[in-house]
Computed example of a mutant assay.
Amino acid sequence: MIAVVLTLVLMLSACGQAANQGNAPASTSAEVAKSTNDSVVASTEPAADAEYWTYESDKGPVQIPRNPQRIVIPVQDFIGDLLTLGVTPIAVAGNDILNHPYFKEALTGVEVVGDDMTVSLEKITSLEPDLIITYQEDTYEQISKIAPTVFIPWGKYDYKERLIEIGKILNKEQQAVKWVTDFNQKLEAKKAELADLIAADKKVAIFEIAGKELFLYGSSYGRGGEIIYNGLGLHAPDLVEEVAFKEGWASLSLETLPEYLGEADYIFQGFSRGVEQDKLDILDSVFWQSLPAVKAGHVFTYDLKTYYLSDAYALDKQLDEIVTLLKSLQ
């Protein structure tokens, strides 16, 4: 069998996304073998006795099973949406995805069909799926030949809207709407727990070390920003909002740390790439050590593997973790 490999370069911008989304997806290539949102494209609802129904996707109408049983998710960013709805896919993709702290238990026995860079169409075919859901433009044509495939453009929906749309696809719209209602109530309850901190307009910044590069993040690039800023209504220092919130991120130099982070009461700090010495060079520097939040011990080091994701499943867990942390540091 001759395999043709389509290769993409994973760039920094692949971590980006549309407003109110978490991180953007990692790019993939393929090893080829044989609502509540008015913008949602209208679909023909499944009849109670119909085995298949027509879903009007962004790629056109797709005949999909009314109650799919063998679902493949070849992108890590949609995994949590299925788990939130009580659905376990038969196969997923992602780097070391079965050991992900949020997914490890839920994905026991699930197959892996690729990582963040490649997926195997041959393996997907061998699993005989009855439904595939993806956002990958480059592999859609090949994957759609294997089984009914729904293409959901990345960034078209925020995480709540996307959960409801996937709920429609899986015939679980009521469960999705209920989750959104319950989560909105949970957000309000968590905000009440932080009422004093929010009323005092405490500033929270998200800062990441990436080798020799340094970055600030806003509300739309994962790393807890969706919960911190959009969910809990907290604010970053004014200068951080000015430079990082429009695009979702901004780079900065070591020397400008006091300028951007000097007004931060709390800092969420991550480490995405490089060697340990790169991190130490920053954290041991006078620029970092002089920050008020650092002196006060108000720094939380987040795990990028968990805080990268911005699906419903991950955000629910991040909400609990972030509120617990902030309450402990008040």
Rank of each mutant, 00 (worst) to 15 (best):
Y157F: 15
L329T: 02
P65K: 09
D77Q: 13
L82K: 12
D316K: 13
F245I: 01
T108D: 15
Q63F: 00
P61Y: 01
D182E: 15
K160T: 08
H100L: 05
A47R: 07
R273M: 05
E259F: 14
K317V: 04
I169F: 08
P101F: 13
S43Y: 02
L194N: 10
M117Y: 10
V92I: 14
Y229K: 05
L121D: 02
K317C: 00
G60P: 02
L283P: 00
K178M: 02
R273Y: 06
G224M: 04
S310P: 00
K186P: 06
K327L: 12
Y308K: 09
Q330I: 01
T149L: 05
G211H: 03
E188M: 06
T181H: 14
Y55P: 03
A293M: 01
D284M: 06
L325I: 10
V62L: 01
S144R: 10
A47Q: 09
V40R: 14
A236F: 02
E161Q: 15
V275Y: 14
A19Q: 06
G270I: 10
L214F: 01
K317P: 01
S35P: 13
E105L: 10
W249N: 08
K156L: 11
D58R: 08
D201K: 15
A48Q: 09
F103N: 05
W179F: 15
D311Q: 07
L232C: 09
P292Q: 06
P25H: 11
V75C: 05
P46Y: 00
L194W: 07
A19T: 00
G274F: 01
P89T: 11
K156H: 12
S27I: 13
V323T: 13
D77F: 10
D320S: 11
L163M: 10
K178Y: 02
V150Y: 11
L82A: 11
V32L: 12
D278Y: 07
K156E: 09
A33N: 11
Y302L: 10
G262N: 04
Y52L: 12
K191G: 12
S27K: 11
G94Y: 08
P129L: 04
F151E: 08
N20E: 09
T108V: 14
W154F: 14
G94E: 06
Y308G: 05
I198P: 06
I143F: 01
I166L: 12
C15R: 14
L163K: 12
D58T: 07
A210I: 03
Y52N: 07
K160H: 06
I71E: 01
G155E: 09
S120G: 09
N20K: 13
K295I: 00
K327S: 04
G80Q: 05
A200Q: 08
I282P: 01
N67E: 13
A3G: 09
R162K: 15
A293E: 01
L315S: 04
A26V: 04
V41Y: 06
S290Q: 05
F245A: 02
K172L: 10
Q17Y: 03
K202M: 02
M1H: 14
A312I: 02
T84I: 03
K156T: 14
L107V: 13
W288D: 00
K212I: 07
L8R: 14
R66T: 15
A33I: 11
K160Q: 14
L232R: 07
D278V: 01
V62A: 00
D303N: 15
I90C: 06
E321F: 02
I164R: 11
E51T: 13
T118E: 10
I146P: 03
V75K: 03
Q318C: 03
Y140L: 03
S310E: 02
K34I: 03
P129K: 08
N37H: 06
G225C: 04
